[in-house]
């Protein structure tokens, strides 16, 4: 845009809005691109749109259709069952267990993680810390590790009889905790895996946001007599408000997709003896591809979509509120 502005022969005195500039007819001698009036744009977005139609929209429509059939992938005639699949899902105890598990794991992994990430970011921002780049790199290492590798290693740490964590617990004379069979303990185990993987990443996001808070605010705060803690609660935290919302939204999206960690810990697709580790995605996969009920699986998929839409709506409202508060 700046380029177009300098090209203009008769530059207006007041800087025009960039939107108006876009509409300006280009000079004949200029490059041919703008003269097509944005038709090129369609070509450039075509790859995405085509891919989206084939791999995004089409499967959605197809599986919506599937949800109304008792679908057998290996035969040509399918039975129309109307809303039956949806009724069965809603009446299925496992669906509600999976939903509860998903949210419990989400809550256990998101909130402690956020506190830790803000803490790490505050430490990284500290003036007294040596080797900042080293520490920042170290924090990001868990995030680039394969999920399955993380899950296998943590699965060994959480082993009931010989796991390191239970060795420590046993050393202090407490009975071993079964991190697979015990419902709450298993959720904690999964939450620890997720936290370990994502806390560094979120720390860096918080750090970037903290560095954007102007130093003058801290200076004036200290002039007002605010100590380090007061500065943190009254200057840093309010400055992080948008970032917290962002991390929360990304965390929620990730939380609804949790799959590899509970699967590896449970060892079975159904999420353990009482489905204590079954998440929504695991439930979907188990019903569709292990129990071979494609129509039923499609109905689960649609219900998950509805849940995501509800959460997105809540997120949207919260974000808008945060944004409007900022304007004031």
């Amino acid at each position: 845009m700046a380029e177009i502005a300098t090209k203009g022969r008769s530059r207006p005195k007041a800087a025009p809005s960039p939107w108006k500039q876009k509409k300006r007819k280009p000079s004949k001698g200029g490059s041919g691109v703008p003269s097509l009036n944005g038709k090129w744009a369609y070509l450039f977005i075509a790859p995405f749109v085509i891919m989206f139609l084939i791999f995004g929209l089409l499967p959605v429509l197809y599986s919506t259709n599937l949800a109304f059939y008792q679908y057998d992938p290996l035969s040509l005639s399918q039975t129309w069952v109307g809303w039956d699949n949806f009724k069965f899902v809603l009446a299925d105890e496992t669906f509600w267990i999976s939903l509860g598990n998903t949210f419990e794991i989400w809550a256990l992994s998101t909130f402690p993680q956020m506190l830790m990430a803000i803490g790490f970011a505050a430490i990284l921002r500290s003036r007294f810390l040596r080797g900042k780049t080293f520490w920042r790199t170290i924090l990001l290492v868990p995030n680039i590790t394969s999920v399955i590798a993380v899950a296998i290693i943590f699965g060994q740490l959480f082993g009931r009889d010989y796991g390191m964590i239970n060795n420590v617990i046993g050393f202090f004379g407490f009975p071993h905790i079964d991190f697979v069979e015990n419902s709450f303990a298993s959720h904690v185990a999964v939450a620890v895996m997720i936290t370990w993987r994502w806390v560094g990443y979120n720390s860096l996001i918080f750090l970037a946001s903290m560095l954007a808070i102007p130093d003058e605010l801290y200076e004036s705060a200290s002039l007002d007599g605010a100590g380090a803690w007061k500065q943190f609660t009254n200057v840093t935290l309010p400055g992080l408000k948008n970032t917290i919302t962002f991390v929360l939204i990304v965390g929620t999206i990730g939380g609804l997709q949790v799959y590899a960690e509970p699967l590896t810990l449970a060892g079975t697709q159904d999420g353990g003896s009482s489905h204590q580790l079954s998440t929504l995605t695991m439930y979907l996969y188990n019903e569709t591809f292990i129990n071979m009920k494609y129509g039923y699986g499609a109905a689960i998929g649609i219900l998950i979509t509805i849940i995501v839409l509800i959460i997105s709506a809540i997120n949207f409202l919260v974000t808008r509120r945060v944004a409007s508060e900022d304007k004031r």
Partner: peptide
């Protein structure tokens, strides 16, 4: 198998 697991884990 899950049913036997529930009994073994004293859940049911």
């Amino acid at each position: 198998g899950a049913g036997l697991g529930r009994v073994a884990a004293k859940k049911q």
